[in-house]
Each structure stands twice: as structure tokens, then as C-alpha cells.
Simulated assay, not measured.
Amino acid sequence: MSCKSCATGGCGTQGGASDGQKTATTGCGSGGCSTGGCNKLNSFDWLSDIAMPGQRYDVIEVKFKGGRKEYHRNVHQLDLTTGDYVVVEMQSGFHIGSVSLQGELVRLQVKKRAVKITDDTKVVHRIATPKDLERHEQAVLRDLPALYRSREIARELKLNMKLSDVEFQSDSTKATFYYSSEERVDFRELIKMLAGEFKARIEMRQISLRQEAGRLGGIGSCGRELCCSTWLTDFKNIATSAARYQNLSLNPAKLSGQCGRLKCCLNYELDTYMDALRDIPTIEKPLETQKGRAYLQKTDIFRKLMWFGYGAESTWYPLPIIRVLEIVELNKNGVVPESFDVLTPVGEKEHATAATLNSDLQKLDAKYTARTPAKKKKKKSRGPEGNSPRPEPNDKIS
């Protein structure tokens, strides 16, 4: 079974598998799936080909719509393959999901997430039959119309909430509405109207803006799919100090993601910057020289350079950290140095560096330019005799 908008129909399992071979969820691989369901929070079972001693762990990880994952017990010892659709037990009725992980990796995930597996843990009933899948597809087709209708009802009730997604259970006995709101919402009347409209038990589940962006998906400013919708599951706190440590411009339009919050990727390289900043001194006041006061303009963290400029000048001078510490120590002792001992300003230094970096490209261009033959001049076309030119249309032939 594949998603409706995937042209290849190969979503879920890896093609070309031999009989009895366990496969991993890989998606269709064509990039033409508009729903994002083929590669949302996928897991690769890197222990699938390794025989583990002892009895196989009887808990499997099942993935549902929006990348939501739950753990169910395989009490019937079904022979499952990653990507198979199974009918699982819910609090009321049953639901259909795909097997995303099984075996020893599930044991590690259960331990990592501190999930308690008891006799009350929901079980897997059976592998989904074509009739089960047909009912599941009918339930999925109800999601979008129900979302539009629920938004209309929320506007009529003047509720300050944003409904982002709806998930109907496969047996159509329950519908889960995901919403986000910055204030407390009294949706008791909304639940009554939705229950009468859709003839199902209604559950309202509030999610954060980051979780909402992960469920809806999208393309980030980097040109790739959002991290929260493809692989990121734990959302850590992100402060504006992360941008300050990396010398980023504090522009909310550039630092905010599609969720309206600070981008999660601000934390990816923060530890590297924090380690590099340990060697860079903190400049609390300008440096004193005989030429005047020099103010810190910017810092190159990884090259260990600090640029200083005089107040009346637009030229910046790069100083290594050792020299900056020397000048700071001299100023503490009441000594004012004559200059920075730097011969070239930053503008000329950057031009020289750029020329050095591009020298290999210039040599490569010159090499291939010399090999390219010169264009031959176009010869005038000659007549059938070889020497006489071809007559023009307006020429008279005597």
C-alpha cells in the first residue's frame, strides 16, 4: 500500500527483496510524494540481518499518520516485515499503522524513552487484510473535509485556536483533532458540535507550534525538508544567546523557522562555537593607542582574529588574539602603544586572501583556455565552380 499521491507505488518497503528477507522503510525514492509520508521520521533497522541470541523481543514500533509512533506487543508472534500494515488495538476499537521498527532496536528505544511495557500494553491483532486497508483508506479520506468543517465551526464559536490536523481512527469510531493555541480554550461546546457532525468520539489534543510544523511538514530556508518532520523528535530549548555566540544577526525574520520560533538548527553548531570562544578574550572597553581609541568591530572565532577600527575611520585592522592580549595588558599598566603593528588594513588583506584562494581557479581556466582551439573564421560560400561566389538574389545574371 502506498500513499495516494506517490506515482511509483513503492512507498513503505525496499524493492527487490528476496523471499524471507527483512527490508527497511526507505520511501519511494523518487521525491515526487507531495504528502511527505514516505520519509517522515523513518527508522532504519541496522540489526535486521543480525541474528540475536535468545527469544526475539515481542514489542514492535508502529507508525501512524504524522509520524506518530507507539509501541505494541506482538503476542501472536506474527512474522512481520518493516513496512507491513498491521491492525493494532486502541482504547476503543482498532487502528491501522505500519511497522517502523522491531527487534532489539525497539528494546533500546523503549529504554531510551522510559516507556513501561506491561500486560496492559496494547497488542497487535493481525496483519491488515485488503478489506482492512480499504476501510482505512475511507477513514483517511475523511480527514481533510473534517478539518475544513471543524475550522468553520470554530470560527462560528469564536474560539481563539488553530486546528492544524485531523486523524480518524481506521474503524471511524474516534477522531483526534490537533490544535495549537497561546491561551486556554473552552472547547466543550465545540466537542458537542463535532460529535454530532461526524458521529464519532472526539478527542482534542493540544500541540506546540514546533510539533505542528513537524506534522504539516514543509521546506526550510536551507532548501531541505524540515528537520522536525523528517528526523528530529526531541525539541530542546533555544535562546537568542545561541545566535549571539555565533555572531549571527539578530533578525527575527532570518532566525525564525516556519513555526514562528527560533530555528532548531541554531543549536547544531553551538557547542563548537562555545569551545572556540574559550580562547577569545572579552573586550570590555576600547584599546588605547597613540593614534586614538580602537573599538572592536567583529570577531572571527575560528581564525582567532579580532577586527578593530578607530571611531573616525572606516578601515578595520585585524589583530591576532595574542596581540590583543598584549595591548590590553599594556593599557592596564598605563602604557599606550604607538600602533597595532599591522601594516595592511582589513580591506587590502581580504583582497589578497581572495586572490590567493582563486589562484588555482585562474590557473585551471588558463590551462583549458590554452587547449581550446581558436574559432575559425567563416568562409564565404562558393558557387558550383569553386571560385565564383554564389549570386545574391538581387544580382542579375547576364
Rank of each mutant, 00 (worst) to 15 (best):
K291C: 05
R135L: 12
N160M: 11
W46E: 08
S249F: 04
K131E: 12
A17R: 14
R382M: 14
K349R: 11
N387R: 15
R56Q: 12
G15P: 12
Y310L: 12
P130L: 01
Q138H: 14
Y179P: 07
F64Q: 05
D132Q: 02
S34E: 13
T282M: 12
A128S: 09
V106T: 10
A355T: 03
Y148V: 08
K304H: 12
S339W: 01
K4D: 07
P384V: 09
L157C: 01
I219C: 03
G103H: 01
E104P: 00
G223S: 07
L209F: 07
Y317L: 01
E156S: 08
R201N: 08
S30D: 09
F44R: 14
K116H: 10
V124S: 02
F44G: 04
S181W: 07
R215A: 06
I397E: 13
L226S: 04
V328N: 01
L78I: 04
N394F: 13
D84W: 11
S164I: 15
H76Y: 10
A370D: 07
R184F: 08
F340Y: 00
S339I: 00
A146S: 14
D45W: 09
D279I: 06
L319Q: 02
E137W: 09
K112F: 03
S208G: 15
A154V: 12
K375I: 08
K376D: 08
P393D: 09
K367M: 15
T299V: 15
A366C: 03
K236Q: 15
T35D: 05
E269Q: 11
D132V: 01
L47Y: 10
R293N: 01
D84K: 13
R135Q: 12
E182Y: 04
K111E: 13
V110W: 00
R155A: 05
N267C: 14
P373K: 13
G31T: 03
G32C: 12
Q362K: 15
G97I: 01
I322C: 01
G15Y: 06
L209R: 07
L357I: 11
V75A: 09
P145R: 04
N331F: 00
S48D: 09
D275S: 06
T129A: 03
A114D: 15
G32A: 14
L190R: 03
T173Q: 14
P337N: 04
N74L: 02
L248F: 09
Q211Y: 05
V86S: 04
L190V: 01
K367F: 15
E338K: 15
A355N: 10
D84V: 05
F302I: 12
T356M: 14
D120I: 04
P337H: 02
S221C: 10
P252K: 05
D395W: 15
A175E: 02
L190P: 02
G20L: 10
E212G: 11
L159H: 07
E313V: 04
K131N: 08
N331G: 00
V185D: 12
V140A: 07
L287H: 00
N333R: 14
